[in-house]
Design a protein around this nucleic acid. Structure first.
Lengths: 220, 220
DNA sequence: AGAGAACCGTACCGTACGGTACGATCATCT
DNA sequence: AGATGATCGTACCGTACGGTACGGTTCTCT
């Protein structure tokens, strides 16, 4: 398995000046997509020289990777290590997680960076996708994993493979919304419906993995 | 609701020569991504003139739209309107659908076109995403819808909202695999695992929507 | 056979991008 | 104060793309 340290450009931290430039780069990306993010345009918008950009980030790909690392470093995925965990609290935590997940995926920055990485994925040797998964998703995955483990320890849910259970939960929550949002379908981006979607997904998740009346494996 | 006829460039059918050119364009897209699909490159690869390309498709965006329409016209989504439908047959049909869905989404052409449309989605006024959904997904959606309706009529499953049930099935099948494949994660593209994934998804779907021992809504 | 349309190959144009070079400016260190 | 290094603004270069124009060729229709 790859670790974060495997990815070039990931470990170094950026100076405040560089972070400001990266923030401006994100704004340009949000405004006009990848085509709007040119070195000359960024230099002008961020009031820095192109020479500095190439000195700091190497080349354009390095800049894109730095943008992903920078954005990921801003999002702190808290771990709900709920101590006193009863069923209703556990369920509420799951619904919170589901709502947060949908809101994150629907966020402007997330969509822009995912579009960027996906657009680059066709080029051979582009590690932006890998980088995005490592730096962006790992935190969310860990939070969910810790949550599921806690629920299982309390006997509130039961599963054999934690990752499989998590992926099922993810599918129940996100469905095909992420891809539709990435494709720009307006109907898929309706944050006011996320709460209801989260509720339903968690309800279904409990039907599949919850411990209630019939906890034994169904024969036949 | 938009219909296919709403989309400019969709209704016209292409001449054999144009179809051959579009096929060549798809090959170029598969080989090197969007950057490799230039008008000059396509003209050279397809042995046609750039002037003809602009005459046939208007501009580059028209060419991309034509590629999507052309590819969609090649994929014929059959409808499993199974007549004698018992539970095991219905389940087999669902597993077939799930396997087909995963294989389609993992296909080279599908991934390339989705990456193309997603990469263009940031630009304002790009209808490629809409076009891809209309022309590519509608067929699959209809096939699944007909299948679910048939199962419900036979009393094999029960649901209130067919679209909701379908989206749940979709989420159970695809999970986050589609986005991971779009991002280029090698681990997500393992067709040898699709059969098992399809089986598990359908099993879970029946737990949620199947009619067995307790078919009444769970109180509390 | 002859006219007309469609099409091919090539050349051309303007633009815009990635990347580099250089002088000027500013901050810091001794 | 003087030197050193980082950075800015600008200019520059080579390339490559989207789109257009044009002469020559092939096909079709009458």
């Amino acid at each position: 398995m790859h670790d974060i340290s495997d990815i070039p450009g990931a470990p170094e931290s950026f100076t405040p000046r560089q972070r400001a430039v990266l923030d401006r780069a994100l704004e340009l990306l949000l405004e006009g997509g990848e085509r709007a993010l040119t070195t000359a345009g960024l230099a002008r918008a961020a009031s820095c020289s192109k020479e500095s950009l190439y000195k700091w980030f190497g080349d354009r790909d390095g800049l894109l990777a730095a943008m992903i690392s920078h954005q990921a470093s801003k999002v702190r995925a808290r771990i709900d290590d709920g101590s006193a965990l009863d069923l209703s609290r556990f369920r509420a935590h799951l619904v919170d997680f589901a709502t947060d997940l949908l809101q994150v995926l629907a966020g402007d920055v997330s969509l822009a960076l995912n579009r960027l990485a996906i657009g680059q994925a066709s080029r051979e040797g582009s590690r932006l996708g890998q980088l995005l998964i490592e730096r962006g998703r790992r935190g969310i995955d860990r939070r969910a994993g810790a949550l599921l483990d806690a629920g299982r320890r309390r006997g509130l849910i039961v599963y054999g493979d934690r990752d499989a259970a998590y992926h099922t939960l993810y599918g129940l929550i996100v469905r095909d919304l992420h891809v539709r949002m990435l494709l720009g379908e307006a109907g898929a981006r309706q944050p006011e419906k996320f709460a209801a979607l989260a509720e339903e997904a968690v309800t279904q998740f409990f039907v599949l993995f919850g411990v209630r009346e019939n906890k034994k494996a169904d024969p036949d």
